[in-house]
Computed example of a mutant assay.
Amino acid sequence: MNVSLFPDVVVNGETIPSAAIAAEAQNHTAPKDKPGIAWRKAAQALAIRTLLLQEARKRDLDADPEELAPGRFETEDEALIRALLDEALTTAPITEEAVRAEWARDPNRYRSAPLWDVSHILCACDPRDEQERLAAEARAVALLARLDGDAKGFAAAARTSDCGSKASGGHLGQLGPNDTVPEFEAALRTLAEGGMTAAPVLSRRGWHLIRLNATAPGQVLPYDTVRPKITLALEKAAWARASRDFIETLAERAQISGTNLAPI
């Protein structure tokens, strides 16, 4: 990306280095043919960050970095922004009426996790090894062609699987969300009960042929069970709105050139 094509970003007389914007742009998505969108998103994010840091220093706040994970701490700037938002933002307590109204909009949104009864055939390989991957794929495709949608023959074909489940006809038992690798679960979620993947599915373990034997959809959870989850979601939404309003207030008072804070 040619950074010279973009104007300097200046917030209340403070210039944000183009190198900083270019580095930040790596964290923002954009169409491959429109890299300027990532640049504008990065410039906007850093302009907001600069506004917040300027306000925190104006208020003479102290940074006290917190430990985010074992051995990983906030930066001074992150701690300063947190201190500012803690001081500046106020939100009204979430009422019982608001929580119940949110739940009543559609109780079906709050369900227990589904269960899937699954069988599979694994043609193992290291996906990073092209020759090994292609050989395993060819084997999986041949198995799939031989099955031709025949569910009854699946257990017999699974005897050639590279998974220990071959001893039980490829049966993996009942699985829930996050019980398998992401690629496997993503394919599983597309299947109808009794269905089988139309093509082999590649995961870090190799190529899978997957059959969904049966499914048990999650049950609608009672209000008292989901109340804490709904309350937390409403609190986060209220905080996000207060944060946006606060940033808009700072931006209205600020002199900003080279970018704007309108949604991209």
Rank of each mutant, 00 (worst) to 15 (best):
A63M: 01
A45L: 03
A19R: 14
A187V: 09
R211Q: 08
L51W: 00
G149D: 06
V118Q: 02
E76K: 14
R205L: 08
H120N: 03
D77W: 03
A19K: 13
E97G: 11
N108Q: 11
E76A: 14
P93F: 13
G195L: 06
N2A: 08
I264H: 13
A254N: 04
P127G: 04
Q174H: 12
P127W: 03
V220C: 06
A104T: 14
I264Q: 15
I37R: 12
A92T: 15
A155V: 09
V181Y: 02
W239M: 09
F246H: 13
D77V: 02
E55L: 00
A145S: 12
A63V: 05
R57N: 13
L209D: 00
D224H: 10
A155C: 03
A43M: 10
N178L: 14
F154Q: 03
I121Y: 00
R100C: 00
D129I: 08
P31A: 07
D77K: 03
G195F: 01
A38P: 06
E66K: 13
I37Q: 13
D8P: 12
R205A: 10
T91L: 07
E14V: 14
L68C: 05
A167N: 02
R57P: 02
Q54D: 04
A145L: 10
K152M: 07
E55W: 00
T249R: 10
G218C: 07
G164A: 12
A199K: 15
E102L: 01
D33K: 12
A238F: 05
L143H: 03
G164L: 04
L232A: 11
A98P: 03
T180W: 00
A23K: 13
A88F: 02
L232R: 15
V99N: 05
R105H: 08
A88N: 03
P70T: 07
I121G: 01
G173N: 12
